[in-house]
Design a protein around this nucleic acid. Sequence first.
RNA 1: GGCCGGUUCGACUAUCGGUUAGGUCGCCAGGUUUUCAUCCUGGAAAGACGGGUUCGACUCCCGUACCGGCUACCA
Length: 511
Amino acid sequence: MDAKVRVRFAPSPTGGLHLGGVRTVLFNYLFAKHHNGEFILRIEDTDQSRFVPGAEQYILDTLAWCGLSPDESPVHGGNYGPYRQSERKANYKKYADQLIAQGNAYYAFDTPADLEAKRAEVPNFQYSRTHRMEMKNSISLSATEVESLLKNNTPHVVRIKMPENEEVIFEDIIRGEVSFDASTVDDKVLLKADGMPTYHLAVVVDDHLMKITHAFRGEEWLPSAPVHILLWKYLFGLDQMPKWAHLPLILKPDGHGKLSKRDGERLGFPVFAMDWTDHITKENTIGFKEKGFLPEAFINLLALLGWNDGTDKEIFTMEELIASFSLDRVHKGGAKFDYEKAKWFNQEWIKRMDNEKLSRLVQPYFDKAEIEIHEHDYLVKIIGLVKERCHLLPDFITQSAFFFKAPTTIDTASITPKWEAKKQQFFEALVKIYSDHIIADKQTIPAIELEAHFKELAALHELKPGELMLPFRIMLVGGKFGPGVFEIVEAIELKDATSRIQYCLQILSTN
RNA sequence: GGCCGGUUCGACUAUCGGUUAGGUCGCCAGGUUUUCAUCCUGGAAAGACGGGUUCGACUCCCGUACCGGCUACCA
């Protein structure tokens, strides 16, 4: 039987994790869990010039928030560590040497300045068979020259020698057969002058050493696939190579191109999973988490960007995704990100979520808005009352603040045009009745009874309840929104309701 | 420029040769809600183009167009 499924997500820790990155993690995770396999997090920090402090922790935090916990990682450990490529540096040279010995790679001594000059001189310069002999390397130079350069520790890189008449063909799980003429691809650098491998060498060596069975990555990697295939062939044999799948890109909602951080800023939506603060500029980029998305919704919407189960089902739990995920239902084409639909997913998840659980998630937003919650049970109850009108977590503040303190702004403009003495008298009578209840030690009354009393009183004053409802609502919540008025009165209790009515009557009489 | 990939309503997508091309978001209209939201009903809205193959093509093949990705000692 086939070996146990092992997949990896291999980000370089350079900044916030964006939608596309998280989706790549998700597909890796779902595939692994679907096949009872293992999901590995490997940090590809081979470019020391791009090291960003905190970025690795951010990736870990993001995976934790999303519920995509790795089985092996720099912090979770595992039998194939270390899981940071910078700590695996010693591994790579051996393989580079092997490639050179086999004639599949060579030393190149060109300085960055040499390369720059050559690029300026030759339009569309490629370091390949067309110009290889014009450069300074162990193919163009004599053996003695190379030896002395090496002996003098002349800075050099190792480049793969792309074959001349070879068609590189491989099977992509999503795209089917893909082929390249190897001679059109340039001689990629494998080992840099600082001794660190480039992605090309590192990914092949580590996938082999970590026994990766399936390698998934974004479509932007497709053009360099022939380099990786060749490396597998030269180093470990094609029969050992993982199965590849190049995932479709997530595109800008408007216009064209890959979704980027700037699109989010421009169009007003998050692109990163969580808040990310640039360590140099201190500029903060908002994340889906902080914007008020539920991780369940975030995962759900990401899963449906480029995949579906073939039915009309759109709301999936993680368990359901694991059960039904399959790579052959992943699309080939990129998907434009639609923030409106993203919010819809979140709303659906808010509606489904347990009030108690929701209350714990919403509490921080109340704290931030400086709205004091005296009783937790009261908050839970209010959440149940307003949840279906909230798309994002902060919506709970605007939708329910009036349950905790009297509204600060009152839309009196919607009352005054039809305000009259009769109505004034009605509300004064209502205040009297509520006050009597309070004196009788009744702090609140069930909504149904409140409504019945209200209607009786209206009839007594020869007014239709309909003309009183809107003013009443505005007195209580400040505007034309919110749950049923009598439910509100029941919740905020008579004392509070009374003072809100009185406050408004005062404003209305002075106008 | 070169190489590679992609193309169904505005967006996400179903369809694996035979359908009035379906669903969801958004949009519009109506109902419910004596408010808003929810919810319900209805509506507008799509196979890039041109050739084949076939009794029959959204579906298979070729070409064109358009879009995207890559083309660093970055990943």
